[in-house]
C-alpha cells in the first residue's frame, strides 16, 4: 500500500502568539515550530496501515527549510521518504495555492491513500485536504476518527462523528482522508528511529519542479486575503468575595452567581 501524508508545520500550542505591526501577520521570531497535531494522527495511521498491509509511507511538507525538522520527525516515527517543497515564490500561498503545489508533487507519485490533518491549528481553515482531493479528482472523506481498509486493499470504511452520532462512509481507493483527534494515539519518534531517519531519503523540490504557473501560487495567487488579525479579548480580572464570616461570604457568592454570572 502506498500512502502519502501531507504535513504542515505550525506554532507549538503553548506559544504566546503576538500580532505583528500592521495586524495582518503574527510575529514568528521566537516561535517554536512543531508538526500540526492533526497531521500527526495521519502519520500514525499511515504507519499502522503500512504495518498491516506492507508498502511505504511518503511525507510531504511545504514551507521554509525549518519544515525539514517536522519531516524528519515523521521519518523518525517510521515513514520511509520525505519531500520538502520549498521556494520563496510559494511563501504566502493560501490553502488553494498550497493544495496546488502539494497536488502537483503527488501527481508524480503512486498512491492508495493520502492523509492530511483535518485542519492546521494555525489558521484553522480546513481547506487544503479538500482542495487536494478535488485537484486530483479523487474522493475525500473528512474528520476520520476510525478507519478500516478492506482486506483486499481496494476500499476503506471511515467513521466520522456527526452531531453526536457516527456516520460510516465507504470509499474506493485511491482516497484522501482528513484526520482528527480520536483516530489514534501518535507514537513518539524513538531515539533509534531518529538515528535511522538521518539516512532516509529527503528530497527537495522548488516551484520550477512543479510545473505550476507562478501566478497561481504565493502571495500573488491568493484568492483569500487576510485583512486583520485580532487577539482574543483579555480575560476579565477575578473577583475576591468579601465578607466578615463564612456565611456572609457564601451569601455574597450565591448572589453573584445568581445576579452577575447568571449561573444559578
Amino acid at each position: 500500500m502506498k500512502i502519502i501524508v501531507c504535513l504542515k508545520q505550525v506554532p507549538d500550542t503553548e506559544t504566546q502568539i503576538k500580532i505583528a505591526p500592521g495586524g495582518e501577520k503574527i510575529v514568528t521570531d521566537d516561535i517554536k515550530w512543531v508538526m500540526n497535531p492533526y497531521d500527526e494522527f495521519g502519520v500514525e495511521e499511515a504507519l499502522r496501515l503500512k504495518e498491516k498491509f506492507g508498502g511505504d509511507v511518503t511525507v510531504i511538507g511545504m514551507g521554509p527549510k525549518r519544515v525539514t525538522e517536522s519531516i524528519r520527525t515523521a521519518l523518525a516515527m517510521g515513514a520511509d521518504k520525505g519531500i520538502l517543497i520549498s521556494d520563496a515564490a510559494l511563501e504566502g500561498s493560501d490553502s488553494l495555492g498550497t493544495a496546488k503545489a502539494l497536488a502537483a508533487v503527488i501527481k508524480g507519485l503512486q498512491f492508495d491513500i493520502i492523509f492530511t490533518g483535518q485542519r492546521g491549528i494555525d489558521e484553522d481553515q480546513g481547506l487544503t485536504g479538500a482542495c487536494i482531493a478535488d485537484l486530483l479528482g479523487i474522493p475525500q472523506v473528512s474528520l476520520a476518527v476510525k478507519l478500516e481498509v478492506a482486506a483486499d486493499g481496494k476500499s476503506v470504511k471511515v467513521n466520522r462523528p456527526v452531531e453526536g452520532q457516527t456516520l460510516v462512509v465507504e470509499a474506493q481507493l485511491p482516497v484522501l482522508i482528513t484526520t482528527q483527534k480520536g483516530l489514534n494515539e501518535p507514537r513518539y519518534a524513538s531515539l533509534p528511529g531518529i538515528m535511522k531517519a538521518k539516512k532516509k531519503p529527503l528530497e527537495e523540490k522548488a516551484l520550477k519542479d512543479l510545473g505550476l504557473d507562478p501566478a497561481e501560487v504565493g502571495l500573488g495567487g491568493r484568492k483569500l486575503k487576510i485583512i486583520k488579525i485580532t487577539p482574543p479579548p483579555a480575560r476579565a480580572e477575578g473577583k475576591i468575595v468579601q465578607g466578615e464570616t463564612p456565611q456572609d461570604k457564601a451569601t455574597e457568592l450565591a448572589r453573584l452567581l445568581h445576579e452577575e454570572a447568571k449561573l444559578i
Binding site: E69, A76, Y188, A189, S190, L191, I194, M195, A197, K198
Partner: peptide, 15 residues
C-alpha cells in the same frame, strides 16, 4: 546536532 535536538524534543515530550 540536529538529530540530538530531535531526540531531546522526544524526551521532553515524554517527560
Amino acid at each position: 546536532p540536529e538529530s540530538l535536538a530531535l531526540m531531546l524534543e522526544t524526551v521532553r515530550r515524554f517527560v
